[in-house]
Amino acid sequence: MTAASAHRLSRRQLLAMAGAGVLAGLTPARAATGPRVATLDWAILETLLAIGANVVAGTELLQFRDVAVTPAVPADVADLGLRGTPNFEVLYAAKPDLIFNSNFYAWADERMRLIAPVESHAVYQHGASPYQRSEEMTLAIGERLGLPTGRALVDAARAKLDAYRINFSRGDHRPILPINLGDARHFRVFGSDSMFGEVLTRTGLTNAWPDLTSYSATAPVGIERLAAMSEAWIVLIPPHPAEAFEELQRSAFWKALPFVQQGRVLLLGSINPYGALPAAERFADLLAGGLARAWNG
């Protein structure tokens, strides 16, 4: 084995890590008993599902299944409709014992308290670490519901990112640019203060975008800005309009970019950009799998 091949990340090893039960997070059985819980917020919903809470209602479940993908939503969870205009009659009919809400939907607290007690958690706030807030939220919800899987999820996510940090250190050390297409001419980019950006930092990777993005993403950014990222891996994170990527691939400008010509573009599966620990783990897994395939041919 040459020094270069020894330094290169093992595709088999990294792909195994991305799918291994030890590091892939938790898939607990849904609680058959325990408090009946509901939420309007997707970061909270994915956390509740991941720790096996007895979830009875959530919002935009069809879209959640397409965008967040995991954790799976049981078929009997009631769909409350749009996050901005939830159906309170359906929420009442679901008979929750406790409703978890976030700062994004605080306007609904007063009405929901007529149905059940409301507890709020804020993952995404200016100047706050969404990853740290996700850990705090997961621990608080787990303790509130008497579920040790809250602590287990936090520990599993940390262990996964630590393991990826070790293995990514054997890669090509190029910066990563995580983006989401708006159309063929614009994208939004996830800075170091976003959840995706924090995952990059915690796994030892460098975010190619030099600026903060107000805890989420900066948009719209003109596609011409990519010309300054010639040394990076471009990581496309759906969901985005299918026609946008197809049109972009036909663009002479896109085809001329060094990372395109050198095969440094990764198209991941869809991930919730405003997710919590499950979304962080999903991003890490998909990125690890994509880089392993690219680095090892």
Rank of each mutant, 00 (worst) to 15 (best):
R8D: 10
A20C: 15
A20R: 13
A29K: 12
A29T: 08
A32R: 13
T33V: 11
T33W: 08
G34W: 01
R36A: 03
A38Y: 04
A43G: 15
A43L: 05
I44P: 03
E46Q: 15
A50W: 02
A50R: 04
N54P: 07
G58D: 04
G58R: 03
F64S: 01
D66V: 12
D66I: 09
V67H: 13
A68P: 07
T70G: 11
P71Y: 02
V77M: 05
R83A: 01
G84T: 05
F88P: 01
E89S: 06
L91Y: 02
A93K: 00
I99V: 09
N101Q: 08
S102M: 00
F104S: 09
D109K: 06
E110L: 08
R111K: 10
R113E: 06
I115E: 05
E119V: 14
Y124V: 01
G127S: 11
P130M: 04
P130D: 02
E135G: 06
E136F: 10
E136I: 13
E136R: 09
G146M: 07
P148E: 07
G150C: 03
R170E: 13
D172H: 10
L177W: 00
L177F: 00
I179R: 03
I179Q: 00
R185I: 12
F190I: 09
S194M: 08
F196A: 01
V199E: 00
V199C: 01
R202L: 14
T203N: 05
N207I: 03
A208D: 12
Y215C: 11
T218M: 09
P220D: 10
P220V: 14
V221F: 13
M229W: 08
E231Q: 12
A232S: 11
W233L: 00
L236E: 10
L248A: 02
Q249K: 11
S251C: 08
S251T: 08
P258C: 00
P258K: 04
V265Y: 07
L268S: 07
S270V: 08
P278G: 07
E281F: 08
L286Y: 05
L287F: 00
G290T: 05
G290N: 07
L291K: 01
A294E: 06
A294M: 12
N296M: 14
